[in-house]
Simulated assay, not measured.
Amino acid sequence: MAGLDGDSLAELLWLGLLLVALIGWYVSGRARPRLGVVLQHALVWVFLFAGVVALYGLRDRLDRTLFPARPVADAAGRIVLLRAQDGHFYARAEVNGTPVRFLVDTGASDILLSREDARRVGIDPDALAYYGTARTANGIVRMARVRLETLRLGPIESRDVPAWVGAGEMSGSLLGMSYLAHFARITIDGDRMTLEPRRP
């Protein structure tokens, strides 16, 4: 179909199958008094199977919508992130044991925590010395140097991680190249970002 790539066409087909399953379920329910018991049970299983198959086919879209920041480790140990609806990649990591949602920003030099996230992970932003500056989506912000006891992304945990805390208003925390450079390779294929760890 013109204007649709392969992924979009596949999603359209899966949505069509799911719609057929739902309509079939509804119609069979209304016609149940006129159907035999065996036929009723057969239709229930047919439409249930079609619905499950359709949901499986739409699993990537559901993941992007419901869990866009959840990192998934594949069989090779690579971390896979799905593109969110706003077009960006986010990663839910644990900082000092506390979940933090990061925007994965290959254009950022360092890890930059918002004041809110810093406070959540046990850092008092009011007690910091803000002597650095960084350009963010909200403009220039002053920064304070900190070290994170632990940062865990999927199965990979790093200790004593250098980072910064922003003094001004930020829409969220950034995961920049000072952390991403520890991976051997970063690739983007469609709506998937894959982080391949370095081998020992």
Rank of each mutant, 00 (worst) to 15 (best):
D189N: 12
N138H: 11
V104D: 01
R32S: 15
L9F: 15
T65Q: 12
L17S: 08
I23M: 11
L62D: 07
A129G: 11
V95K: 06
L113Y: 03
D126V: 08
W45E: 05
S109T: 10
F89G: 07
R185T: 12
A84I: 04
L112D: 08
A181D: 09
L4E: 14
F47C: 05
A84F: 01
T187R: 10
E169A: 14
L180E: 06
V95M: 12
L153Q: 02
S114P: 02
R198W: 04
I188M: 07
W45L: 14
V165Q: 01
A54G: 13
G87F: 01
E196S: 07
D60M: 04
V165I: 03
Q40M: 07
Y90R: 04
G97E: 07
V38N: 03
L148E: 02
I79F: 03
L19Y: 00
Q40P: 00
S28A: 15
L195G: 02
M1N: 10
L9P: 00
A163D: 09
A91S: 07
A184W: 00
V27S: 06
D5R: 09
R120S: 14
A10P: 03
G166S: 13
A181R: 15
Y130F: 14
F47P: 03
D189C: 06
L19Q: 05
A137Y: 07
A129V: 11
L112Q: 04
L18N: 04
A127T: 06
R145S: 14
A134Q: 06
G87P: 01
S114E: 12
R78E: 15
T98S: 00
A21M: 09
A2R: 11
R119G: 04
Y179D: 02
L18V: 04
G3P: 00
M177L: 15
P99T: 13
R78T: 05
G6W: 07
V37Q: 09
R32M: 01
L13F: 13
S171Q: 15
A137N: 09
T65K: 02
W164S: 08
P197G: 04
A108K: 12
A2T: 07
F67G: 00
V72Y: 02
D105I: 08
L151G: 01
R142N: 13
A167F: 09
R192G: 00
L66R: 10
L103H: 11
G176F: 05
N96C: 06
T150K: 06
R120L: 13
E116K: 10
S178K: 04
P125L: 12
A2V: 13
G29T: 08
S178T: 11
R152I: 06
L13E: 14
Y131S: 14
P162A: 11
Y179G: 03
T187F: 01
R70P: 00
D5P: 09
D7I: 04
D105H: 04
D105V: 05
V146F: 10
I140W: 12
